[in-house]
């Protein structure tokens, strides 16, 4: 048996430690005499190393909240009704990650029970702020270093040109942005921070069907203050955990910049 020719299957089994010890040694001897075979084995070994290296970082990623929830026994811990409704929305937002997988629509409908079918703009924005702004490692999908790419991508997905305003004069720098699910389609979120690390998000929706412009409105959602307004098909909401007056000043700056375009 040990003298039988070394096949491709032997090489793979050798690499994976699946050969009996004797056969393993026989393959070793064979490899020493067959550089082509040894090179071939090396290419598979390198492939193996590259695959492990490529996916190793996934093991260290923070677990998405939806998955932590799903690890909980549905019997032992029937889904508690959260006292704060925005927490429930956080769960809903996290769940409907993209909608690529088949089951999400059905799940979304189940979750819609006891929740308004259409979530008002300031609440959507506040939830998105609460979800993403504390994220240290991955607060945005595309960072400000790639601003042009960010603009191109978000404009394409929203089907209309969107561009983050400059808030440097107000002390805020752009961190980047991301795409999110709104009530009926994609919405954009731009995130900024100031020198102290305080984060601010601008939520841009193109879902406004009524086409009725509004003045600035203020809402408070849990710890988050939100200024929002509607301009044509666009709905804007500026959220941060900063005082109302300060936020109003920034909202004015955002509005002026958007108007002057």
């Amino acid at each position: 048996m040990n003298s039988s020719p070394v096949t491709d299957a032997d090489l793979h089994a050798f690499l994976d430690g699946e050969l009996p010890p004797e056969r393993h040694r026989a393959v070793e001897v064979w490899l020493a005499a067959h550089p082509d075979g040894a090179r071939r084995l090396e290419s598979f070994r390198e492939q193996q190393r590259a695959l492990r290296r490529m996916f190793a970082p996934v093991l260290d990623e923070p677990l998405p909240e939806a998955l932590i929830q799903a690890s909980r026994s549905p019997i032992a811990a029937p889904r508690a009704r959260p006292r704060r409704p925005w927490l429930q929305l956080v769960a809903a937002v996290l769940m409907t990650c993209t909608g690529v997988a088949g089951g999400w629509i059905a799940r979304g409908q189940q979750d819609a029970v006891g929740m308004a079918a259409v979530v008002p703009l300031p609440r959507q924005a506040a939830v998105a702020h609460v979800v993403f702004s504390p994220d240290v490692k991955r607060p945005v999908e595309i960072r400000a270093e790639h601003e042009e790419q960010l603009i191109t991508w978000l404009s394409k997905r929203l089907g209309t040109a969107v561009r983050p305003p400059r808030l440097t004069a107000q002390g805020f720098e752009l961190i980047g942005g991301r795409l999110l699910p709104g009530n009926t389609g994609p919405v954009a979120q731009f995130m900024y921070h100031d020198a102290s690390g305080q984060r601010l998000t601008l939520y841009v929706s193109t879902e406004n069907a009524s086409n009725r412009d509004t003045a600035f409105r203020f809402a408070q959602e849990g710890p988050v203050n939100v200024f929002y307004w509607i301009d044509g098909k666009f709905g804007y909401a500026l959220s941060a955990g900063i005082p109302k007056d300060t936020l109003a000043g920034i909202a004015t700056a955002v509005y002026e910049q958007l108007e002057s375009r």
């Binding site: 998405p64 939806a66 998955l67 799903a70 769940m95 990650c97 993209t98 690529v100 997988a101 089951g103 999400w104």
Partner: peptide, 9 residues
């Protein structure tokens, strides 16, 4: 996202 949806399922 599709991968995490699969894990959740």
């Amino acid at each position: 996202c599709a991968a995490d949806d699969l894990v959740q399922d």
